[in-house]
Design a protein around this nucleic acid. Structure first.
Length: 435
DNA sequence: TCTGGGGTCCTAGGACCC
DNA sequence: TCTGGGGTCCTAGGACCC
């Protein structure tokens, strides 16, 4: 194949991937865990991340905790501690930024960096930069990373995946074919199961076979994202490094599965109510308001039924959303079915702004709610999330809440509530509106 | 993969307009 | 009422990611 890129690095893109990130953060927190089969995700009942020791025993992603106990009785289960992982994540980005400002915070345990043009200023080869960054990360954070260096993002991803854990893989222009030949097309970043099986029909199994297809064929048979991947595989960099920090959302969603499944209408509604409250908390944190909602119920046999509603005015308070949901809830709830989860997706988001009063005083009411929830956000900041919540969420709050939270917070919560009196006093008026 | 939770982007096709 | 041609905007749903 004649690659576009005949020299080693037209661009030097680094991809850094934390090894079993959540678990290694836990080990860094508590060194006694080192060398043991550690598993995170306890609060969800399924495996989220697992140590290499657990992997060696046959533990897999998304496995049920109960399954794990059978094959690995000495496994150590931990709840996810996102605050700690986020701190490690920030430190990871900062260490890489000591070398270049062009860092993309791709996910909690991954980032990309563009090293192009830094050989002279830093006085070292790209290979040495990659090795040094990895060394800094490993030693400063006490956890290991797998690193790939290549001319494009897609190739750098292949590199970091090539040798794990703690690998450093350099894919020079002239090495591309060799690495692509070893990589199944289904493992390429951005090629999922649908596209893989489509490509299989044409005899394309390796990434190399895909990269060698004629441009015309790719353009005709596939869509833009896959065409871009094809370009990237051939060493032509089309994906830029996104250095801007994420500070807004196109959509916000909250879904929660509960066990056992339930056909109790009030209970299912309260689950949804809690999700709505959580989604609105996030909405307000980013100073956003929503105009379109989609809420759904998931039955025990994984059927979804949902309703989408467009609102005439943007809101960021749960009660107005719950009012709407309440008027459509009958349509999707069926007491002869068992439900296992509820969810809400907020889309058509915009920056919240002061609204003008309309003739009917509706806006004024919305403004007042907004003020109330602003206060509630302050209280939550002080006393912990869900120190105050809507009456309609009560059934959902009550149940699991205390197990997963730290004792201190629970106590405070109880004080603030002091039973049901406080809640009723605060929320009965709204409750009346909602139900 | 018998199924947890949170996102993004792209495209086809309909609605509507000239 | 039908026929031509061309454009924009919006939405549903697919596909993919961590």
């Amino acid at each position: 194949m004649q690659l576009i890129n005949t020299f080693d690095f037209s661009r030097a893109i680094l991809h850094i991937d934390g090894d079993s990130f959540f678990v290694l953060c836990e080990v860094a927190k508590n060194p006694k865990l080192r060398g043991k089969p550690v598993i995170t995700g306890m609060e969800r009942g399924i495996v989220s991340a697992f140590s290499y020791e657990a992997k060696a025993r046959g533990v897999k992603r998304a496995m049920r905790i109960s399954e794990v106990k059978k094959i690995c009785p000495d496994a150590i289960f931990l709840p996810s501690d996102y605050e700690t992982y986020s701190l490690f994540s920030l430190r990871m980005y900062d260490i890489v930024r000591k070398y270049t400002p062009d860092v993309e915070e791709y996910s909690i345990d991954e980032c990309f960096a563009d090293l192009t043009g830094l050989r002279r200023p830093l006085g070292m080869s790209y290979e040495n930069m990659a090795a040094k960054i990895k060394k800094d990360l490993d030693s400063e954070l006490g956890i290991t990373f797998s690193v790939g260096l290549a001319p494009t993002k897609v190739l750098a991803k292949i590199g970091s995946k090539h040798k794990k854990p703690s690998g450093l893989t350099i894919i020079r222009g002239r090495d591309i074919d060799q690495y692509l030949n070893e990589t199944p097309v289904s493992e390429v970043w951005g090629i999922g199961s649908q596209t893989s099986s489509f490509l299989h029909k044409f005899g394309i199994r390796s990434a190399l076979q895909y990269a060698q297809k004629e441009e015309r064929w790719v353009r005709e048979k596939l869509t833009k994202p896959h065409f871009q991947i094809w370009q990237e595989l051939r060493g032509e960099s089309v994906y830029k490094i996104e250095t801007s920090k994420k500070n807004d959302y196109k959509s916000i969603s909250k879904t929660k599965t509960f066990t056992p499944a339930s056909s109790n209408k009030e209970f299912v509604f309260s689950q949804l109510s809690k999700n709505v409250e959580n989604a609105c908390i996030k909405l307000r944190r980013y100073n956003l308001s929503v105009k379109k909602i989609f809420f759904f119920l998931k039955t025990q046999d994984f059927q979804y039924c949902g309703v989408e509603v467009k609102m005439s005015d943007a809101t960021n308070t749960p009660n107005s959303i719950l009012n709407i949901i309440d008027s459509h809830f009958e349509k999707i709830f069926d007491s002869s079915k068992l439900f296992r989860a509820t969810g809400i997706i907020l889309s058509d988001l915009s920056i919240s702004q002061a609204r003008q009063l309309d003739l009917f005083g509706k806006m004024e009411q919305e403004e007042n709610f907004s003020k109330i929830f602003k206060k509630i956000d302050e209280i939550s900041k002080k006393y912990g999330k869900h120190s105050v919540f809507l009456g309609t969420s009560f059934l959902a709050m009550n149940k699991k809440q205390h197990q997963s939270e730290r004792g201190v917070q629970s106590e405070r919560k109880l004080n603030l509530f002091n039973g049901e009196t406080t809640r009723k006093k605060l929320y009965l008026p709204m409750l009346g509106e909602v139900r």
